[in-house]
Nucleic acid binder design. Structure first.
Lengths: 113, 113
DNA sequence: ATAACATGCAACCAAATGGTTGTAGATGTT
DNA sequence: AACATCTACAACCATTTGGTTGCATGTTAT
């Protein structure tokens, strides 16, 4: 299973940034396990509805989640491929460590645009 | 190879946050490939020395990097175990997606304190 | 001893983040 | 039609972030 879609620096920034918040990680977990409406999610956290909605928007921007309209609800679903891309990035760091990367610039290129 | 050191929510926040910046990811790459002094690193980027020093401090706080004093220099080295912990976290998300986690609370507990 | 170099840290600044409340538009229910 | 529910978004606010410059300290070389 190859997950090799090139991500821009900015996209990688957004990806890790989105994961750098416990509430957002929790939303990712729940929506990977199964879709949930924004208001369903909102009931789970001790903050305003708008705050949860913002977190979902951040996750959308990082492409960790999609929203699908169903009636008046928006069903939020986690995108496993994006998790896999994050894994692929971390893998490349591990490979550097293991000395498996001869040309370091090859790796740099991987992340450019 | 088991990498299962429990990380607090705050530690995970710091870990992903530290990775959410292209300059810092670059520093991690370089220092995983081999140690480098702070000033060596600083010459590589188009920003002040102090800015680079701050980035290194953020990486230290996330335990992605250590500094070892050698004379007047501080040799910065990447910590591969911390990359592996990030991988382990992402793995757990993938497993949720694959439906391998029956009790979701078991995973929550994993990240709590 | 003096000069040069590597580092650490404080003070400052603009922009982004994470939260709030309030208003408004769609959709569903009675 | 009237009402309730789900969502979107703007305006506002305190804090954090990512950068700067300037100054102080420790180490190496002349």
């Amino acid at each position: 299973m190859v997950v090799d879609v090139e991500l821009s620096d900015a996209a990688v920034d957004r990806l890790f940034r989105a994961l750098a918040d416990a509430t957002r990680r929790d939303i990712v977990r729940r929506t990977l396990a199964g879709g949930a409406s924004v208001s369903e999610l909102a009931t789970a956290y001790d903050m305003s509805w708008a705050a949860v909605q913002k977190h979902v928007a951040v996750l959308e921007g990082a492409e960790l989640v999609t929203k699908e309209a169903r009636g008046r609800e928006r069903i939020v679903r986690g995108i496993p491929q994006q998790i896999q891309r994050a894994q692929a990035l971390l893998d490349s760091y591990e490979q550097i460590w293991r000395g498996r990367v001869q040309r370091l610039d090859a790796l740099f290129a991987e992340e450019d645009n």
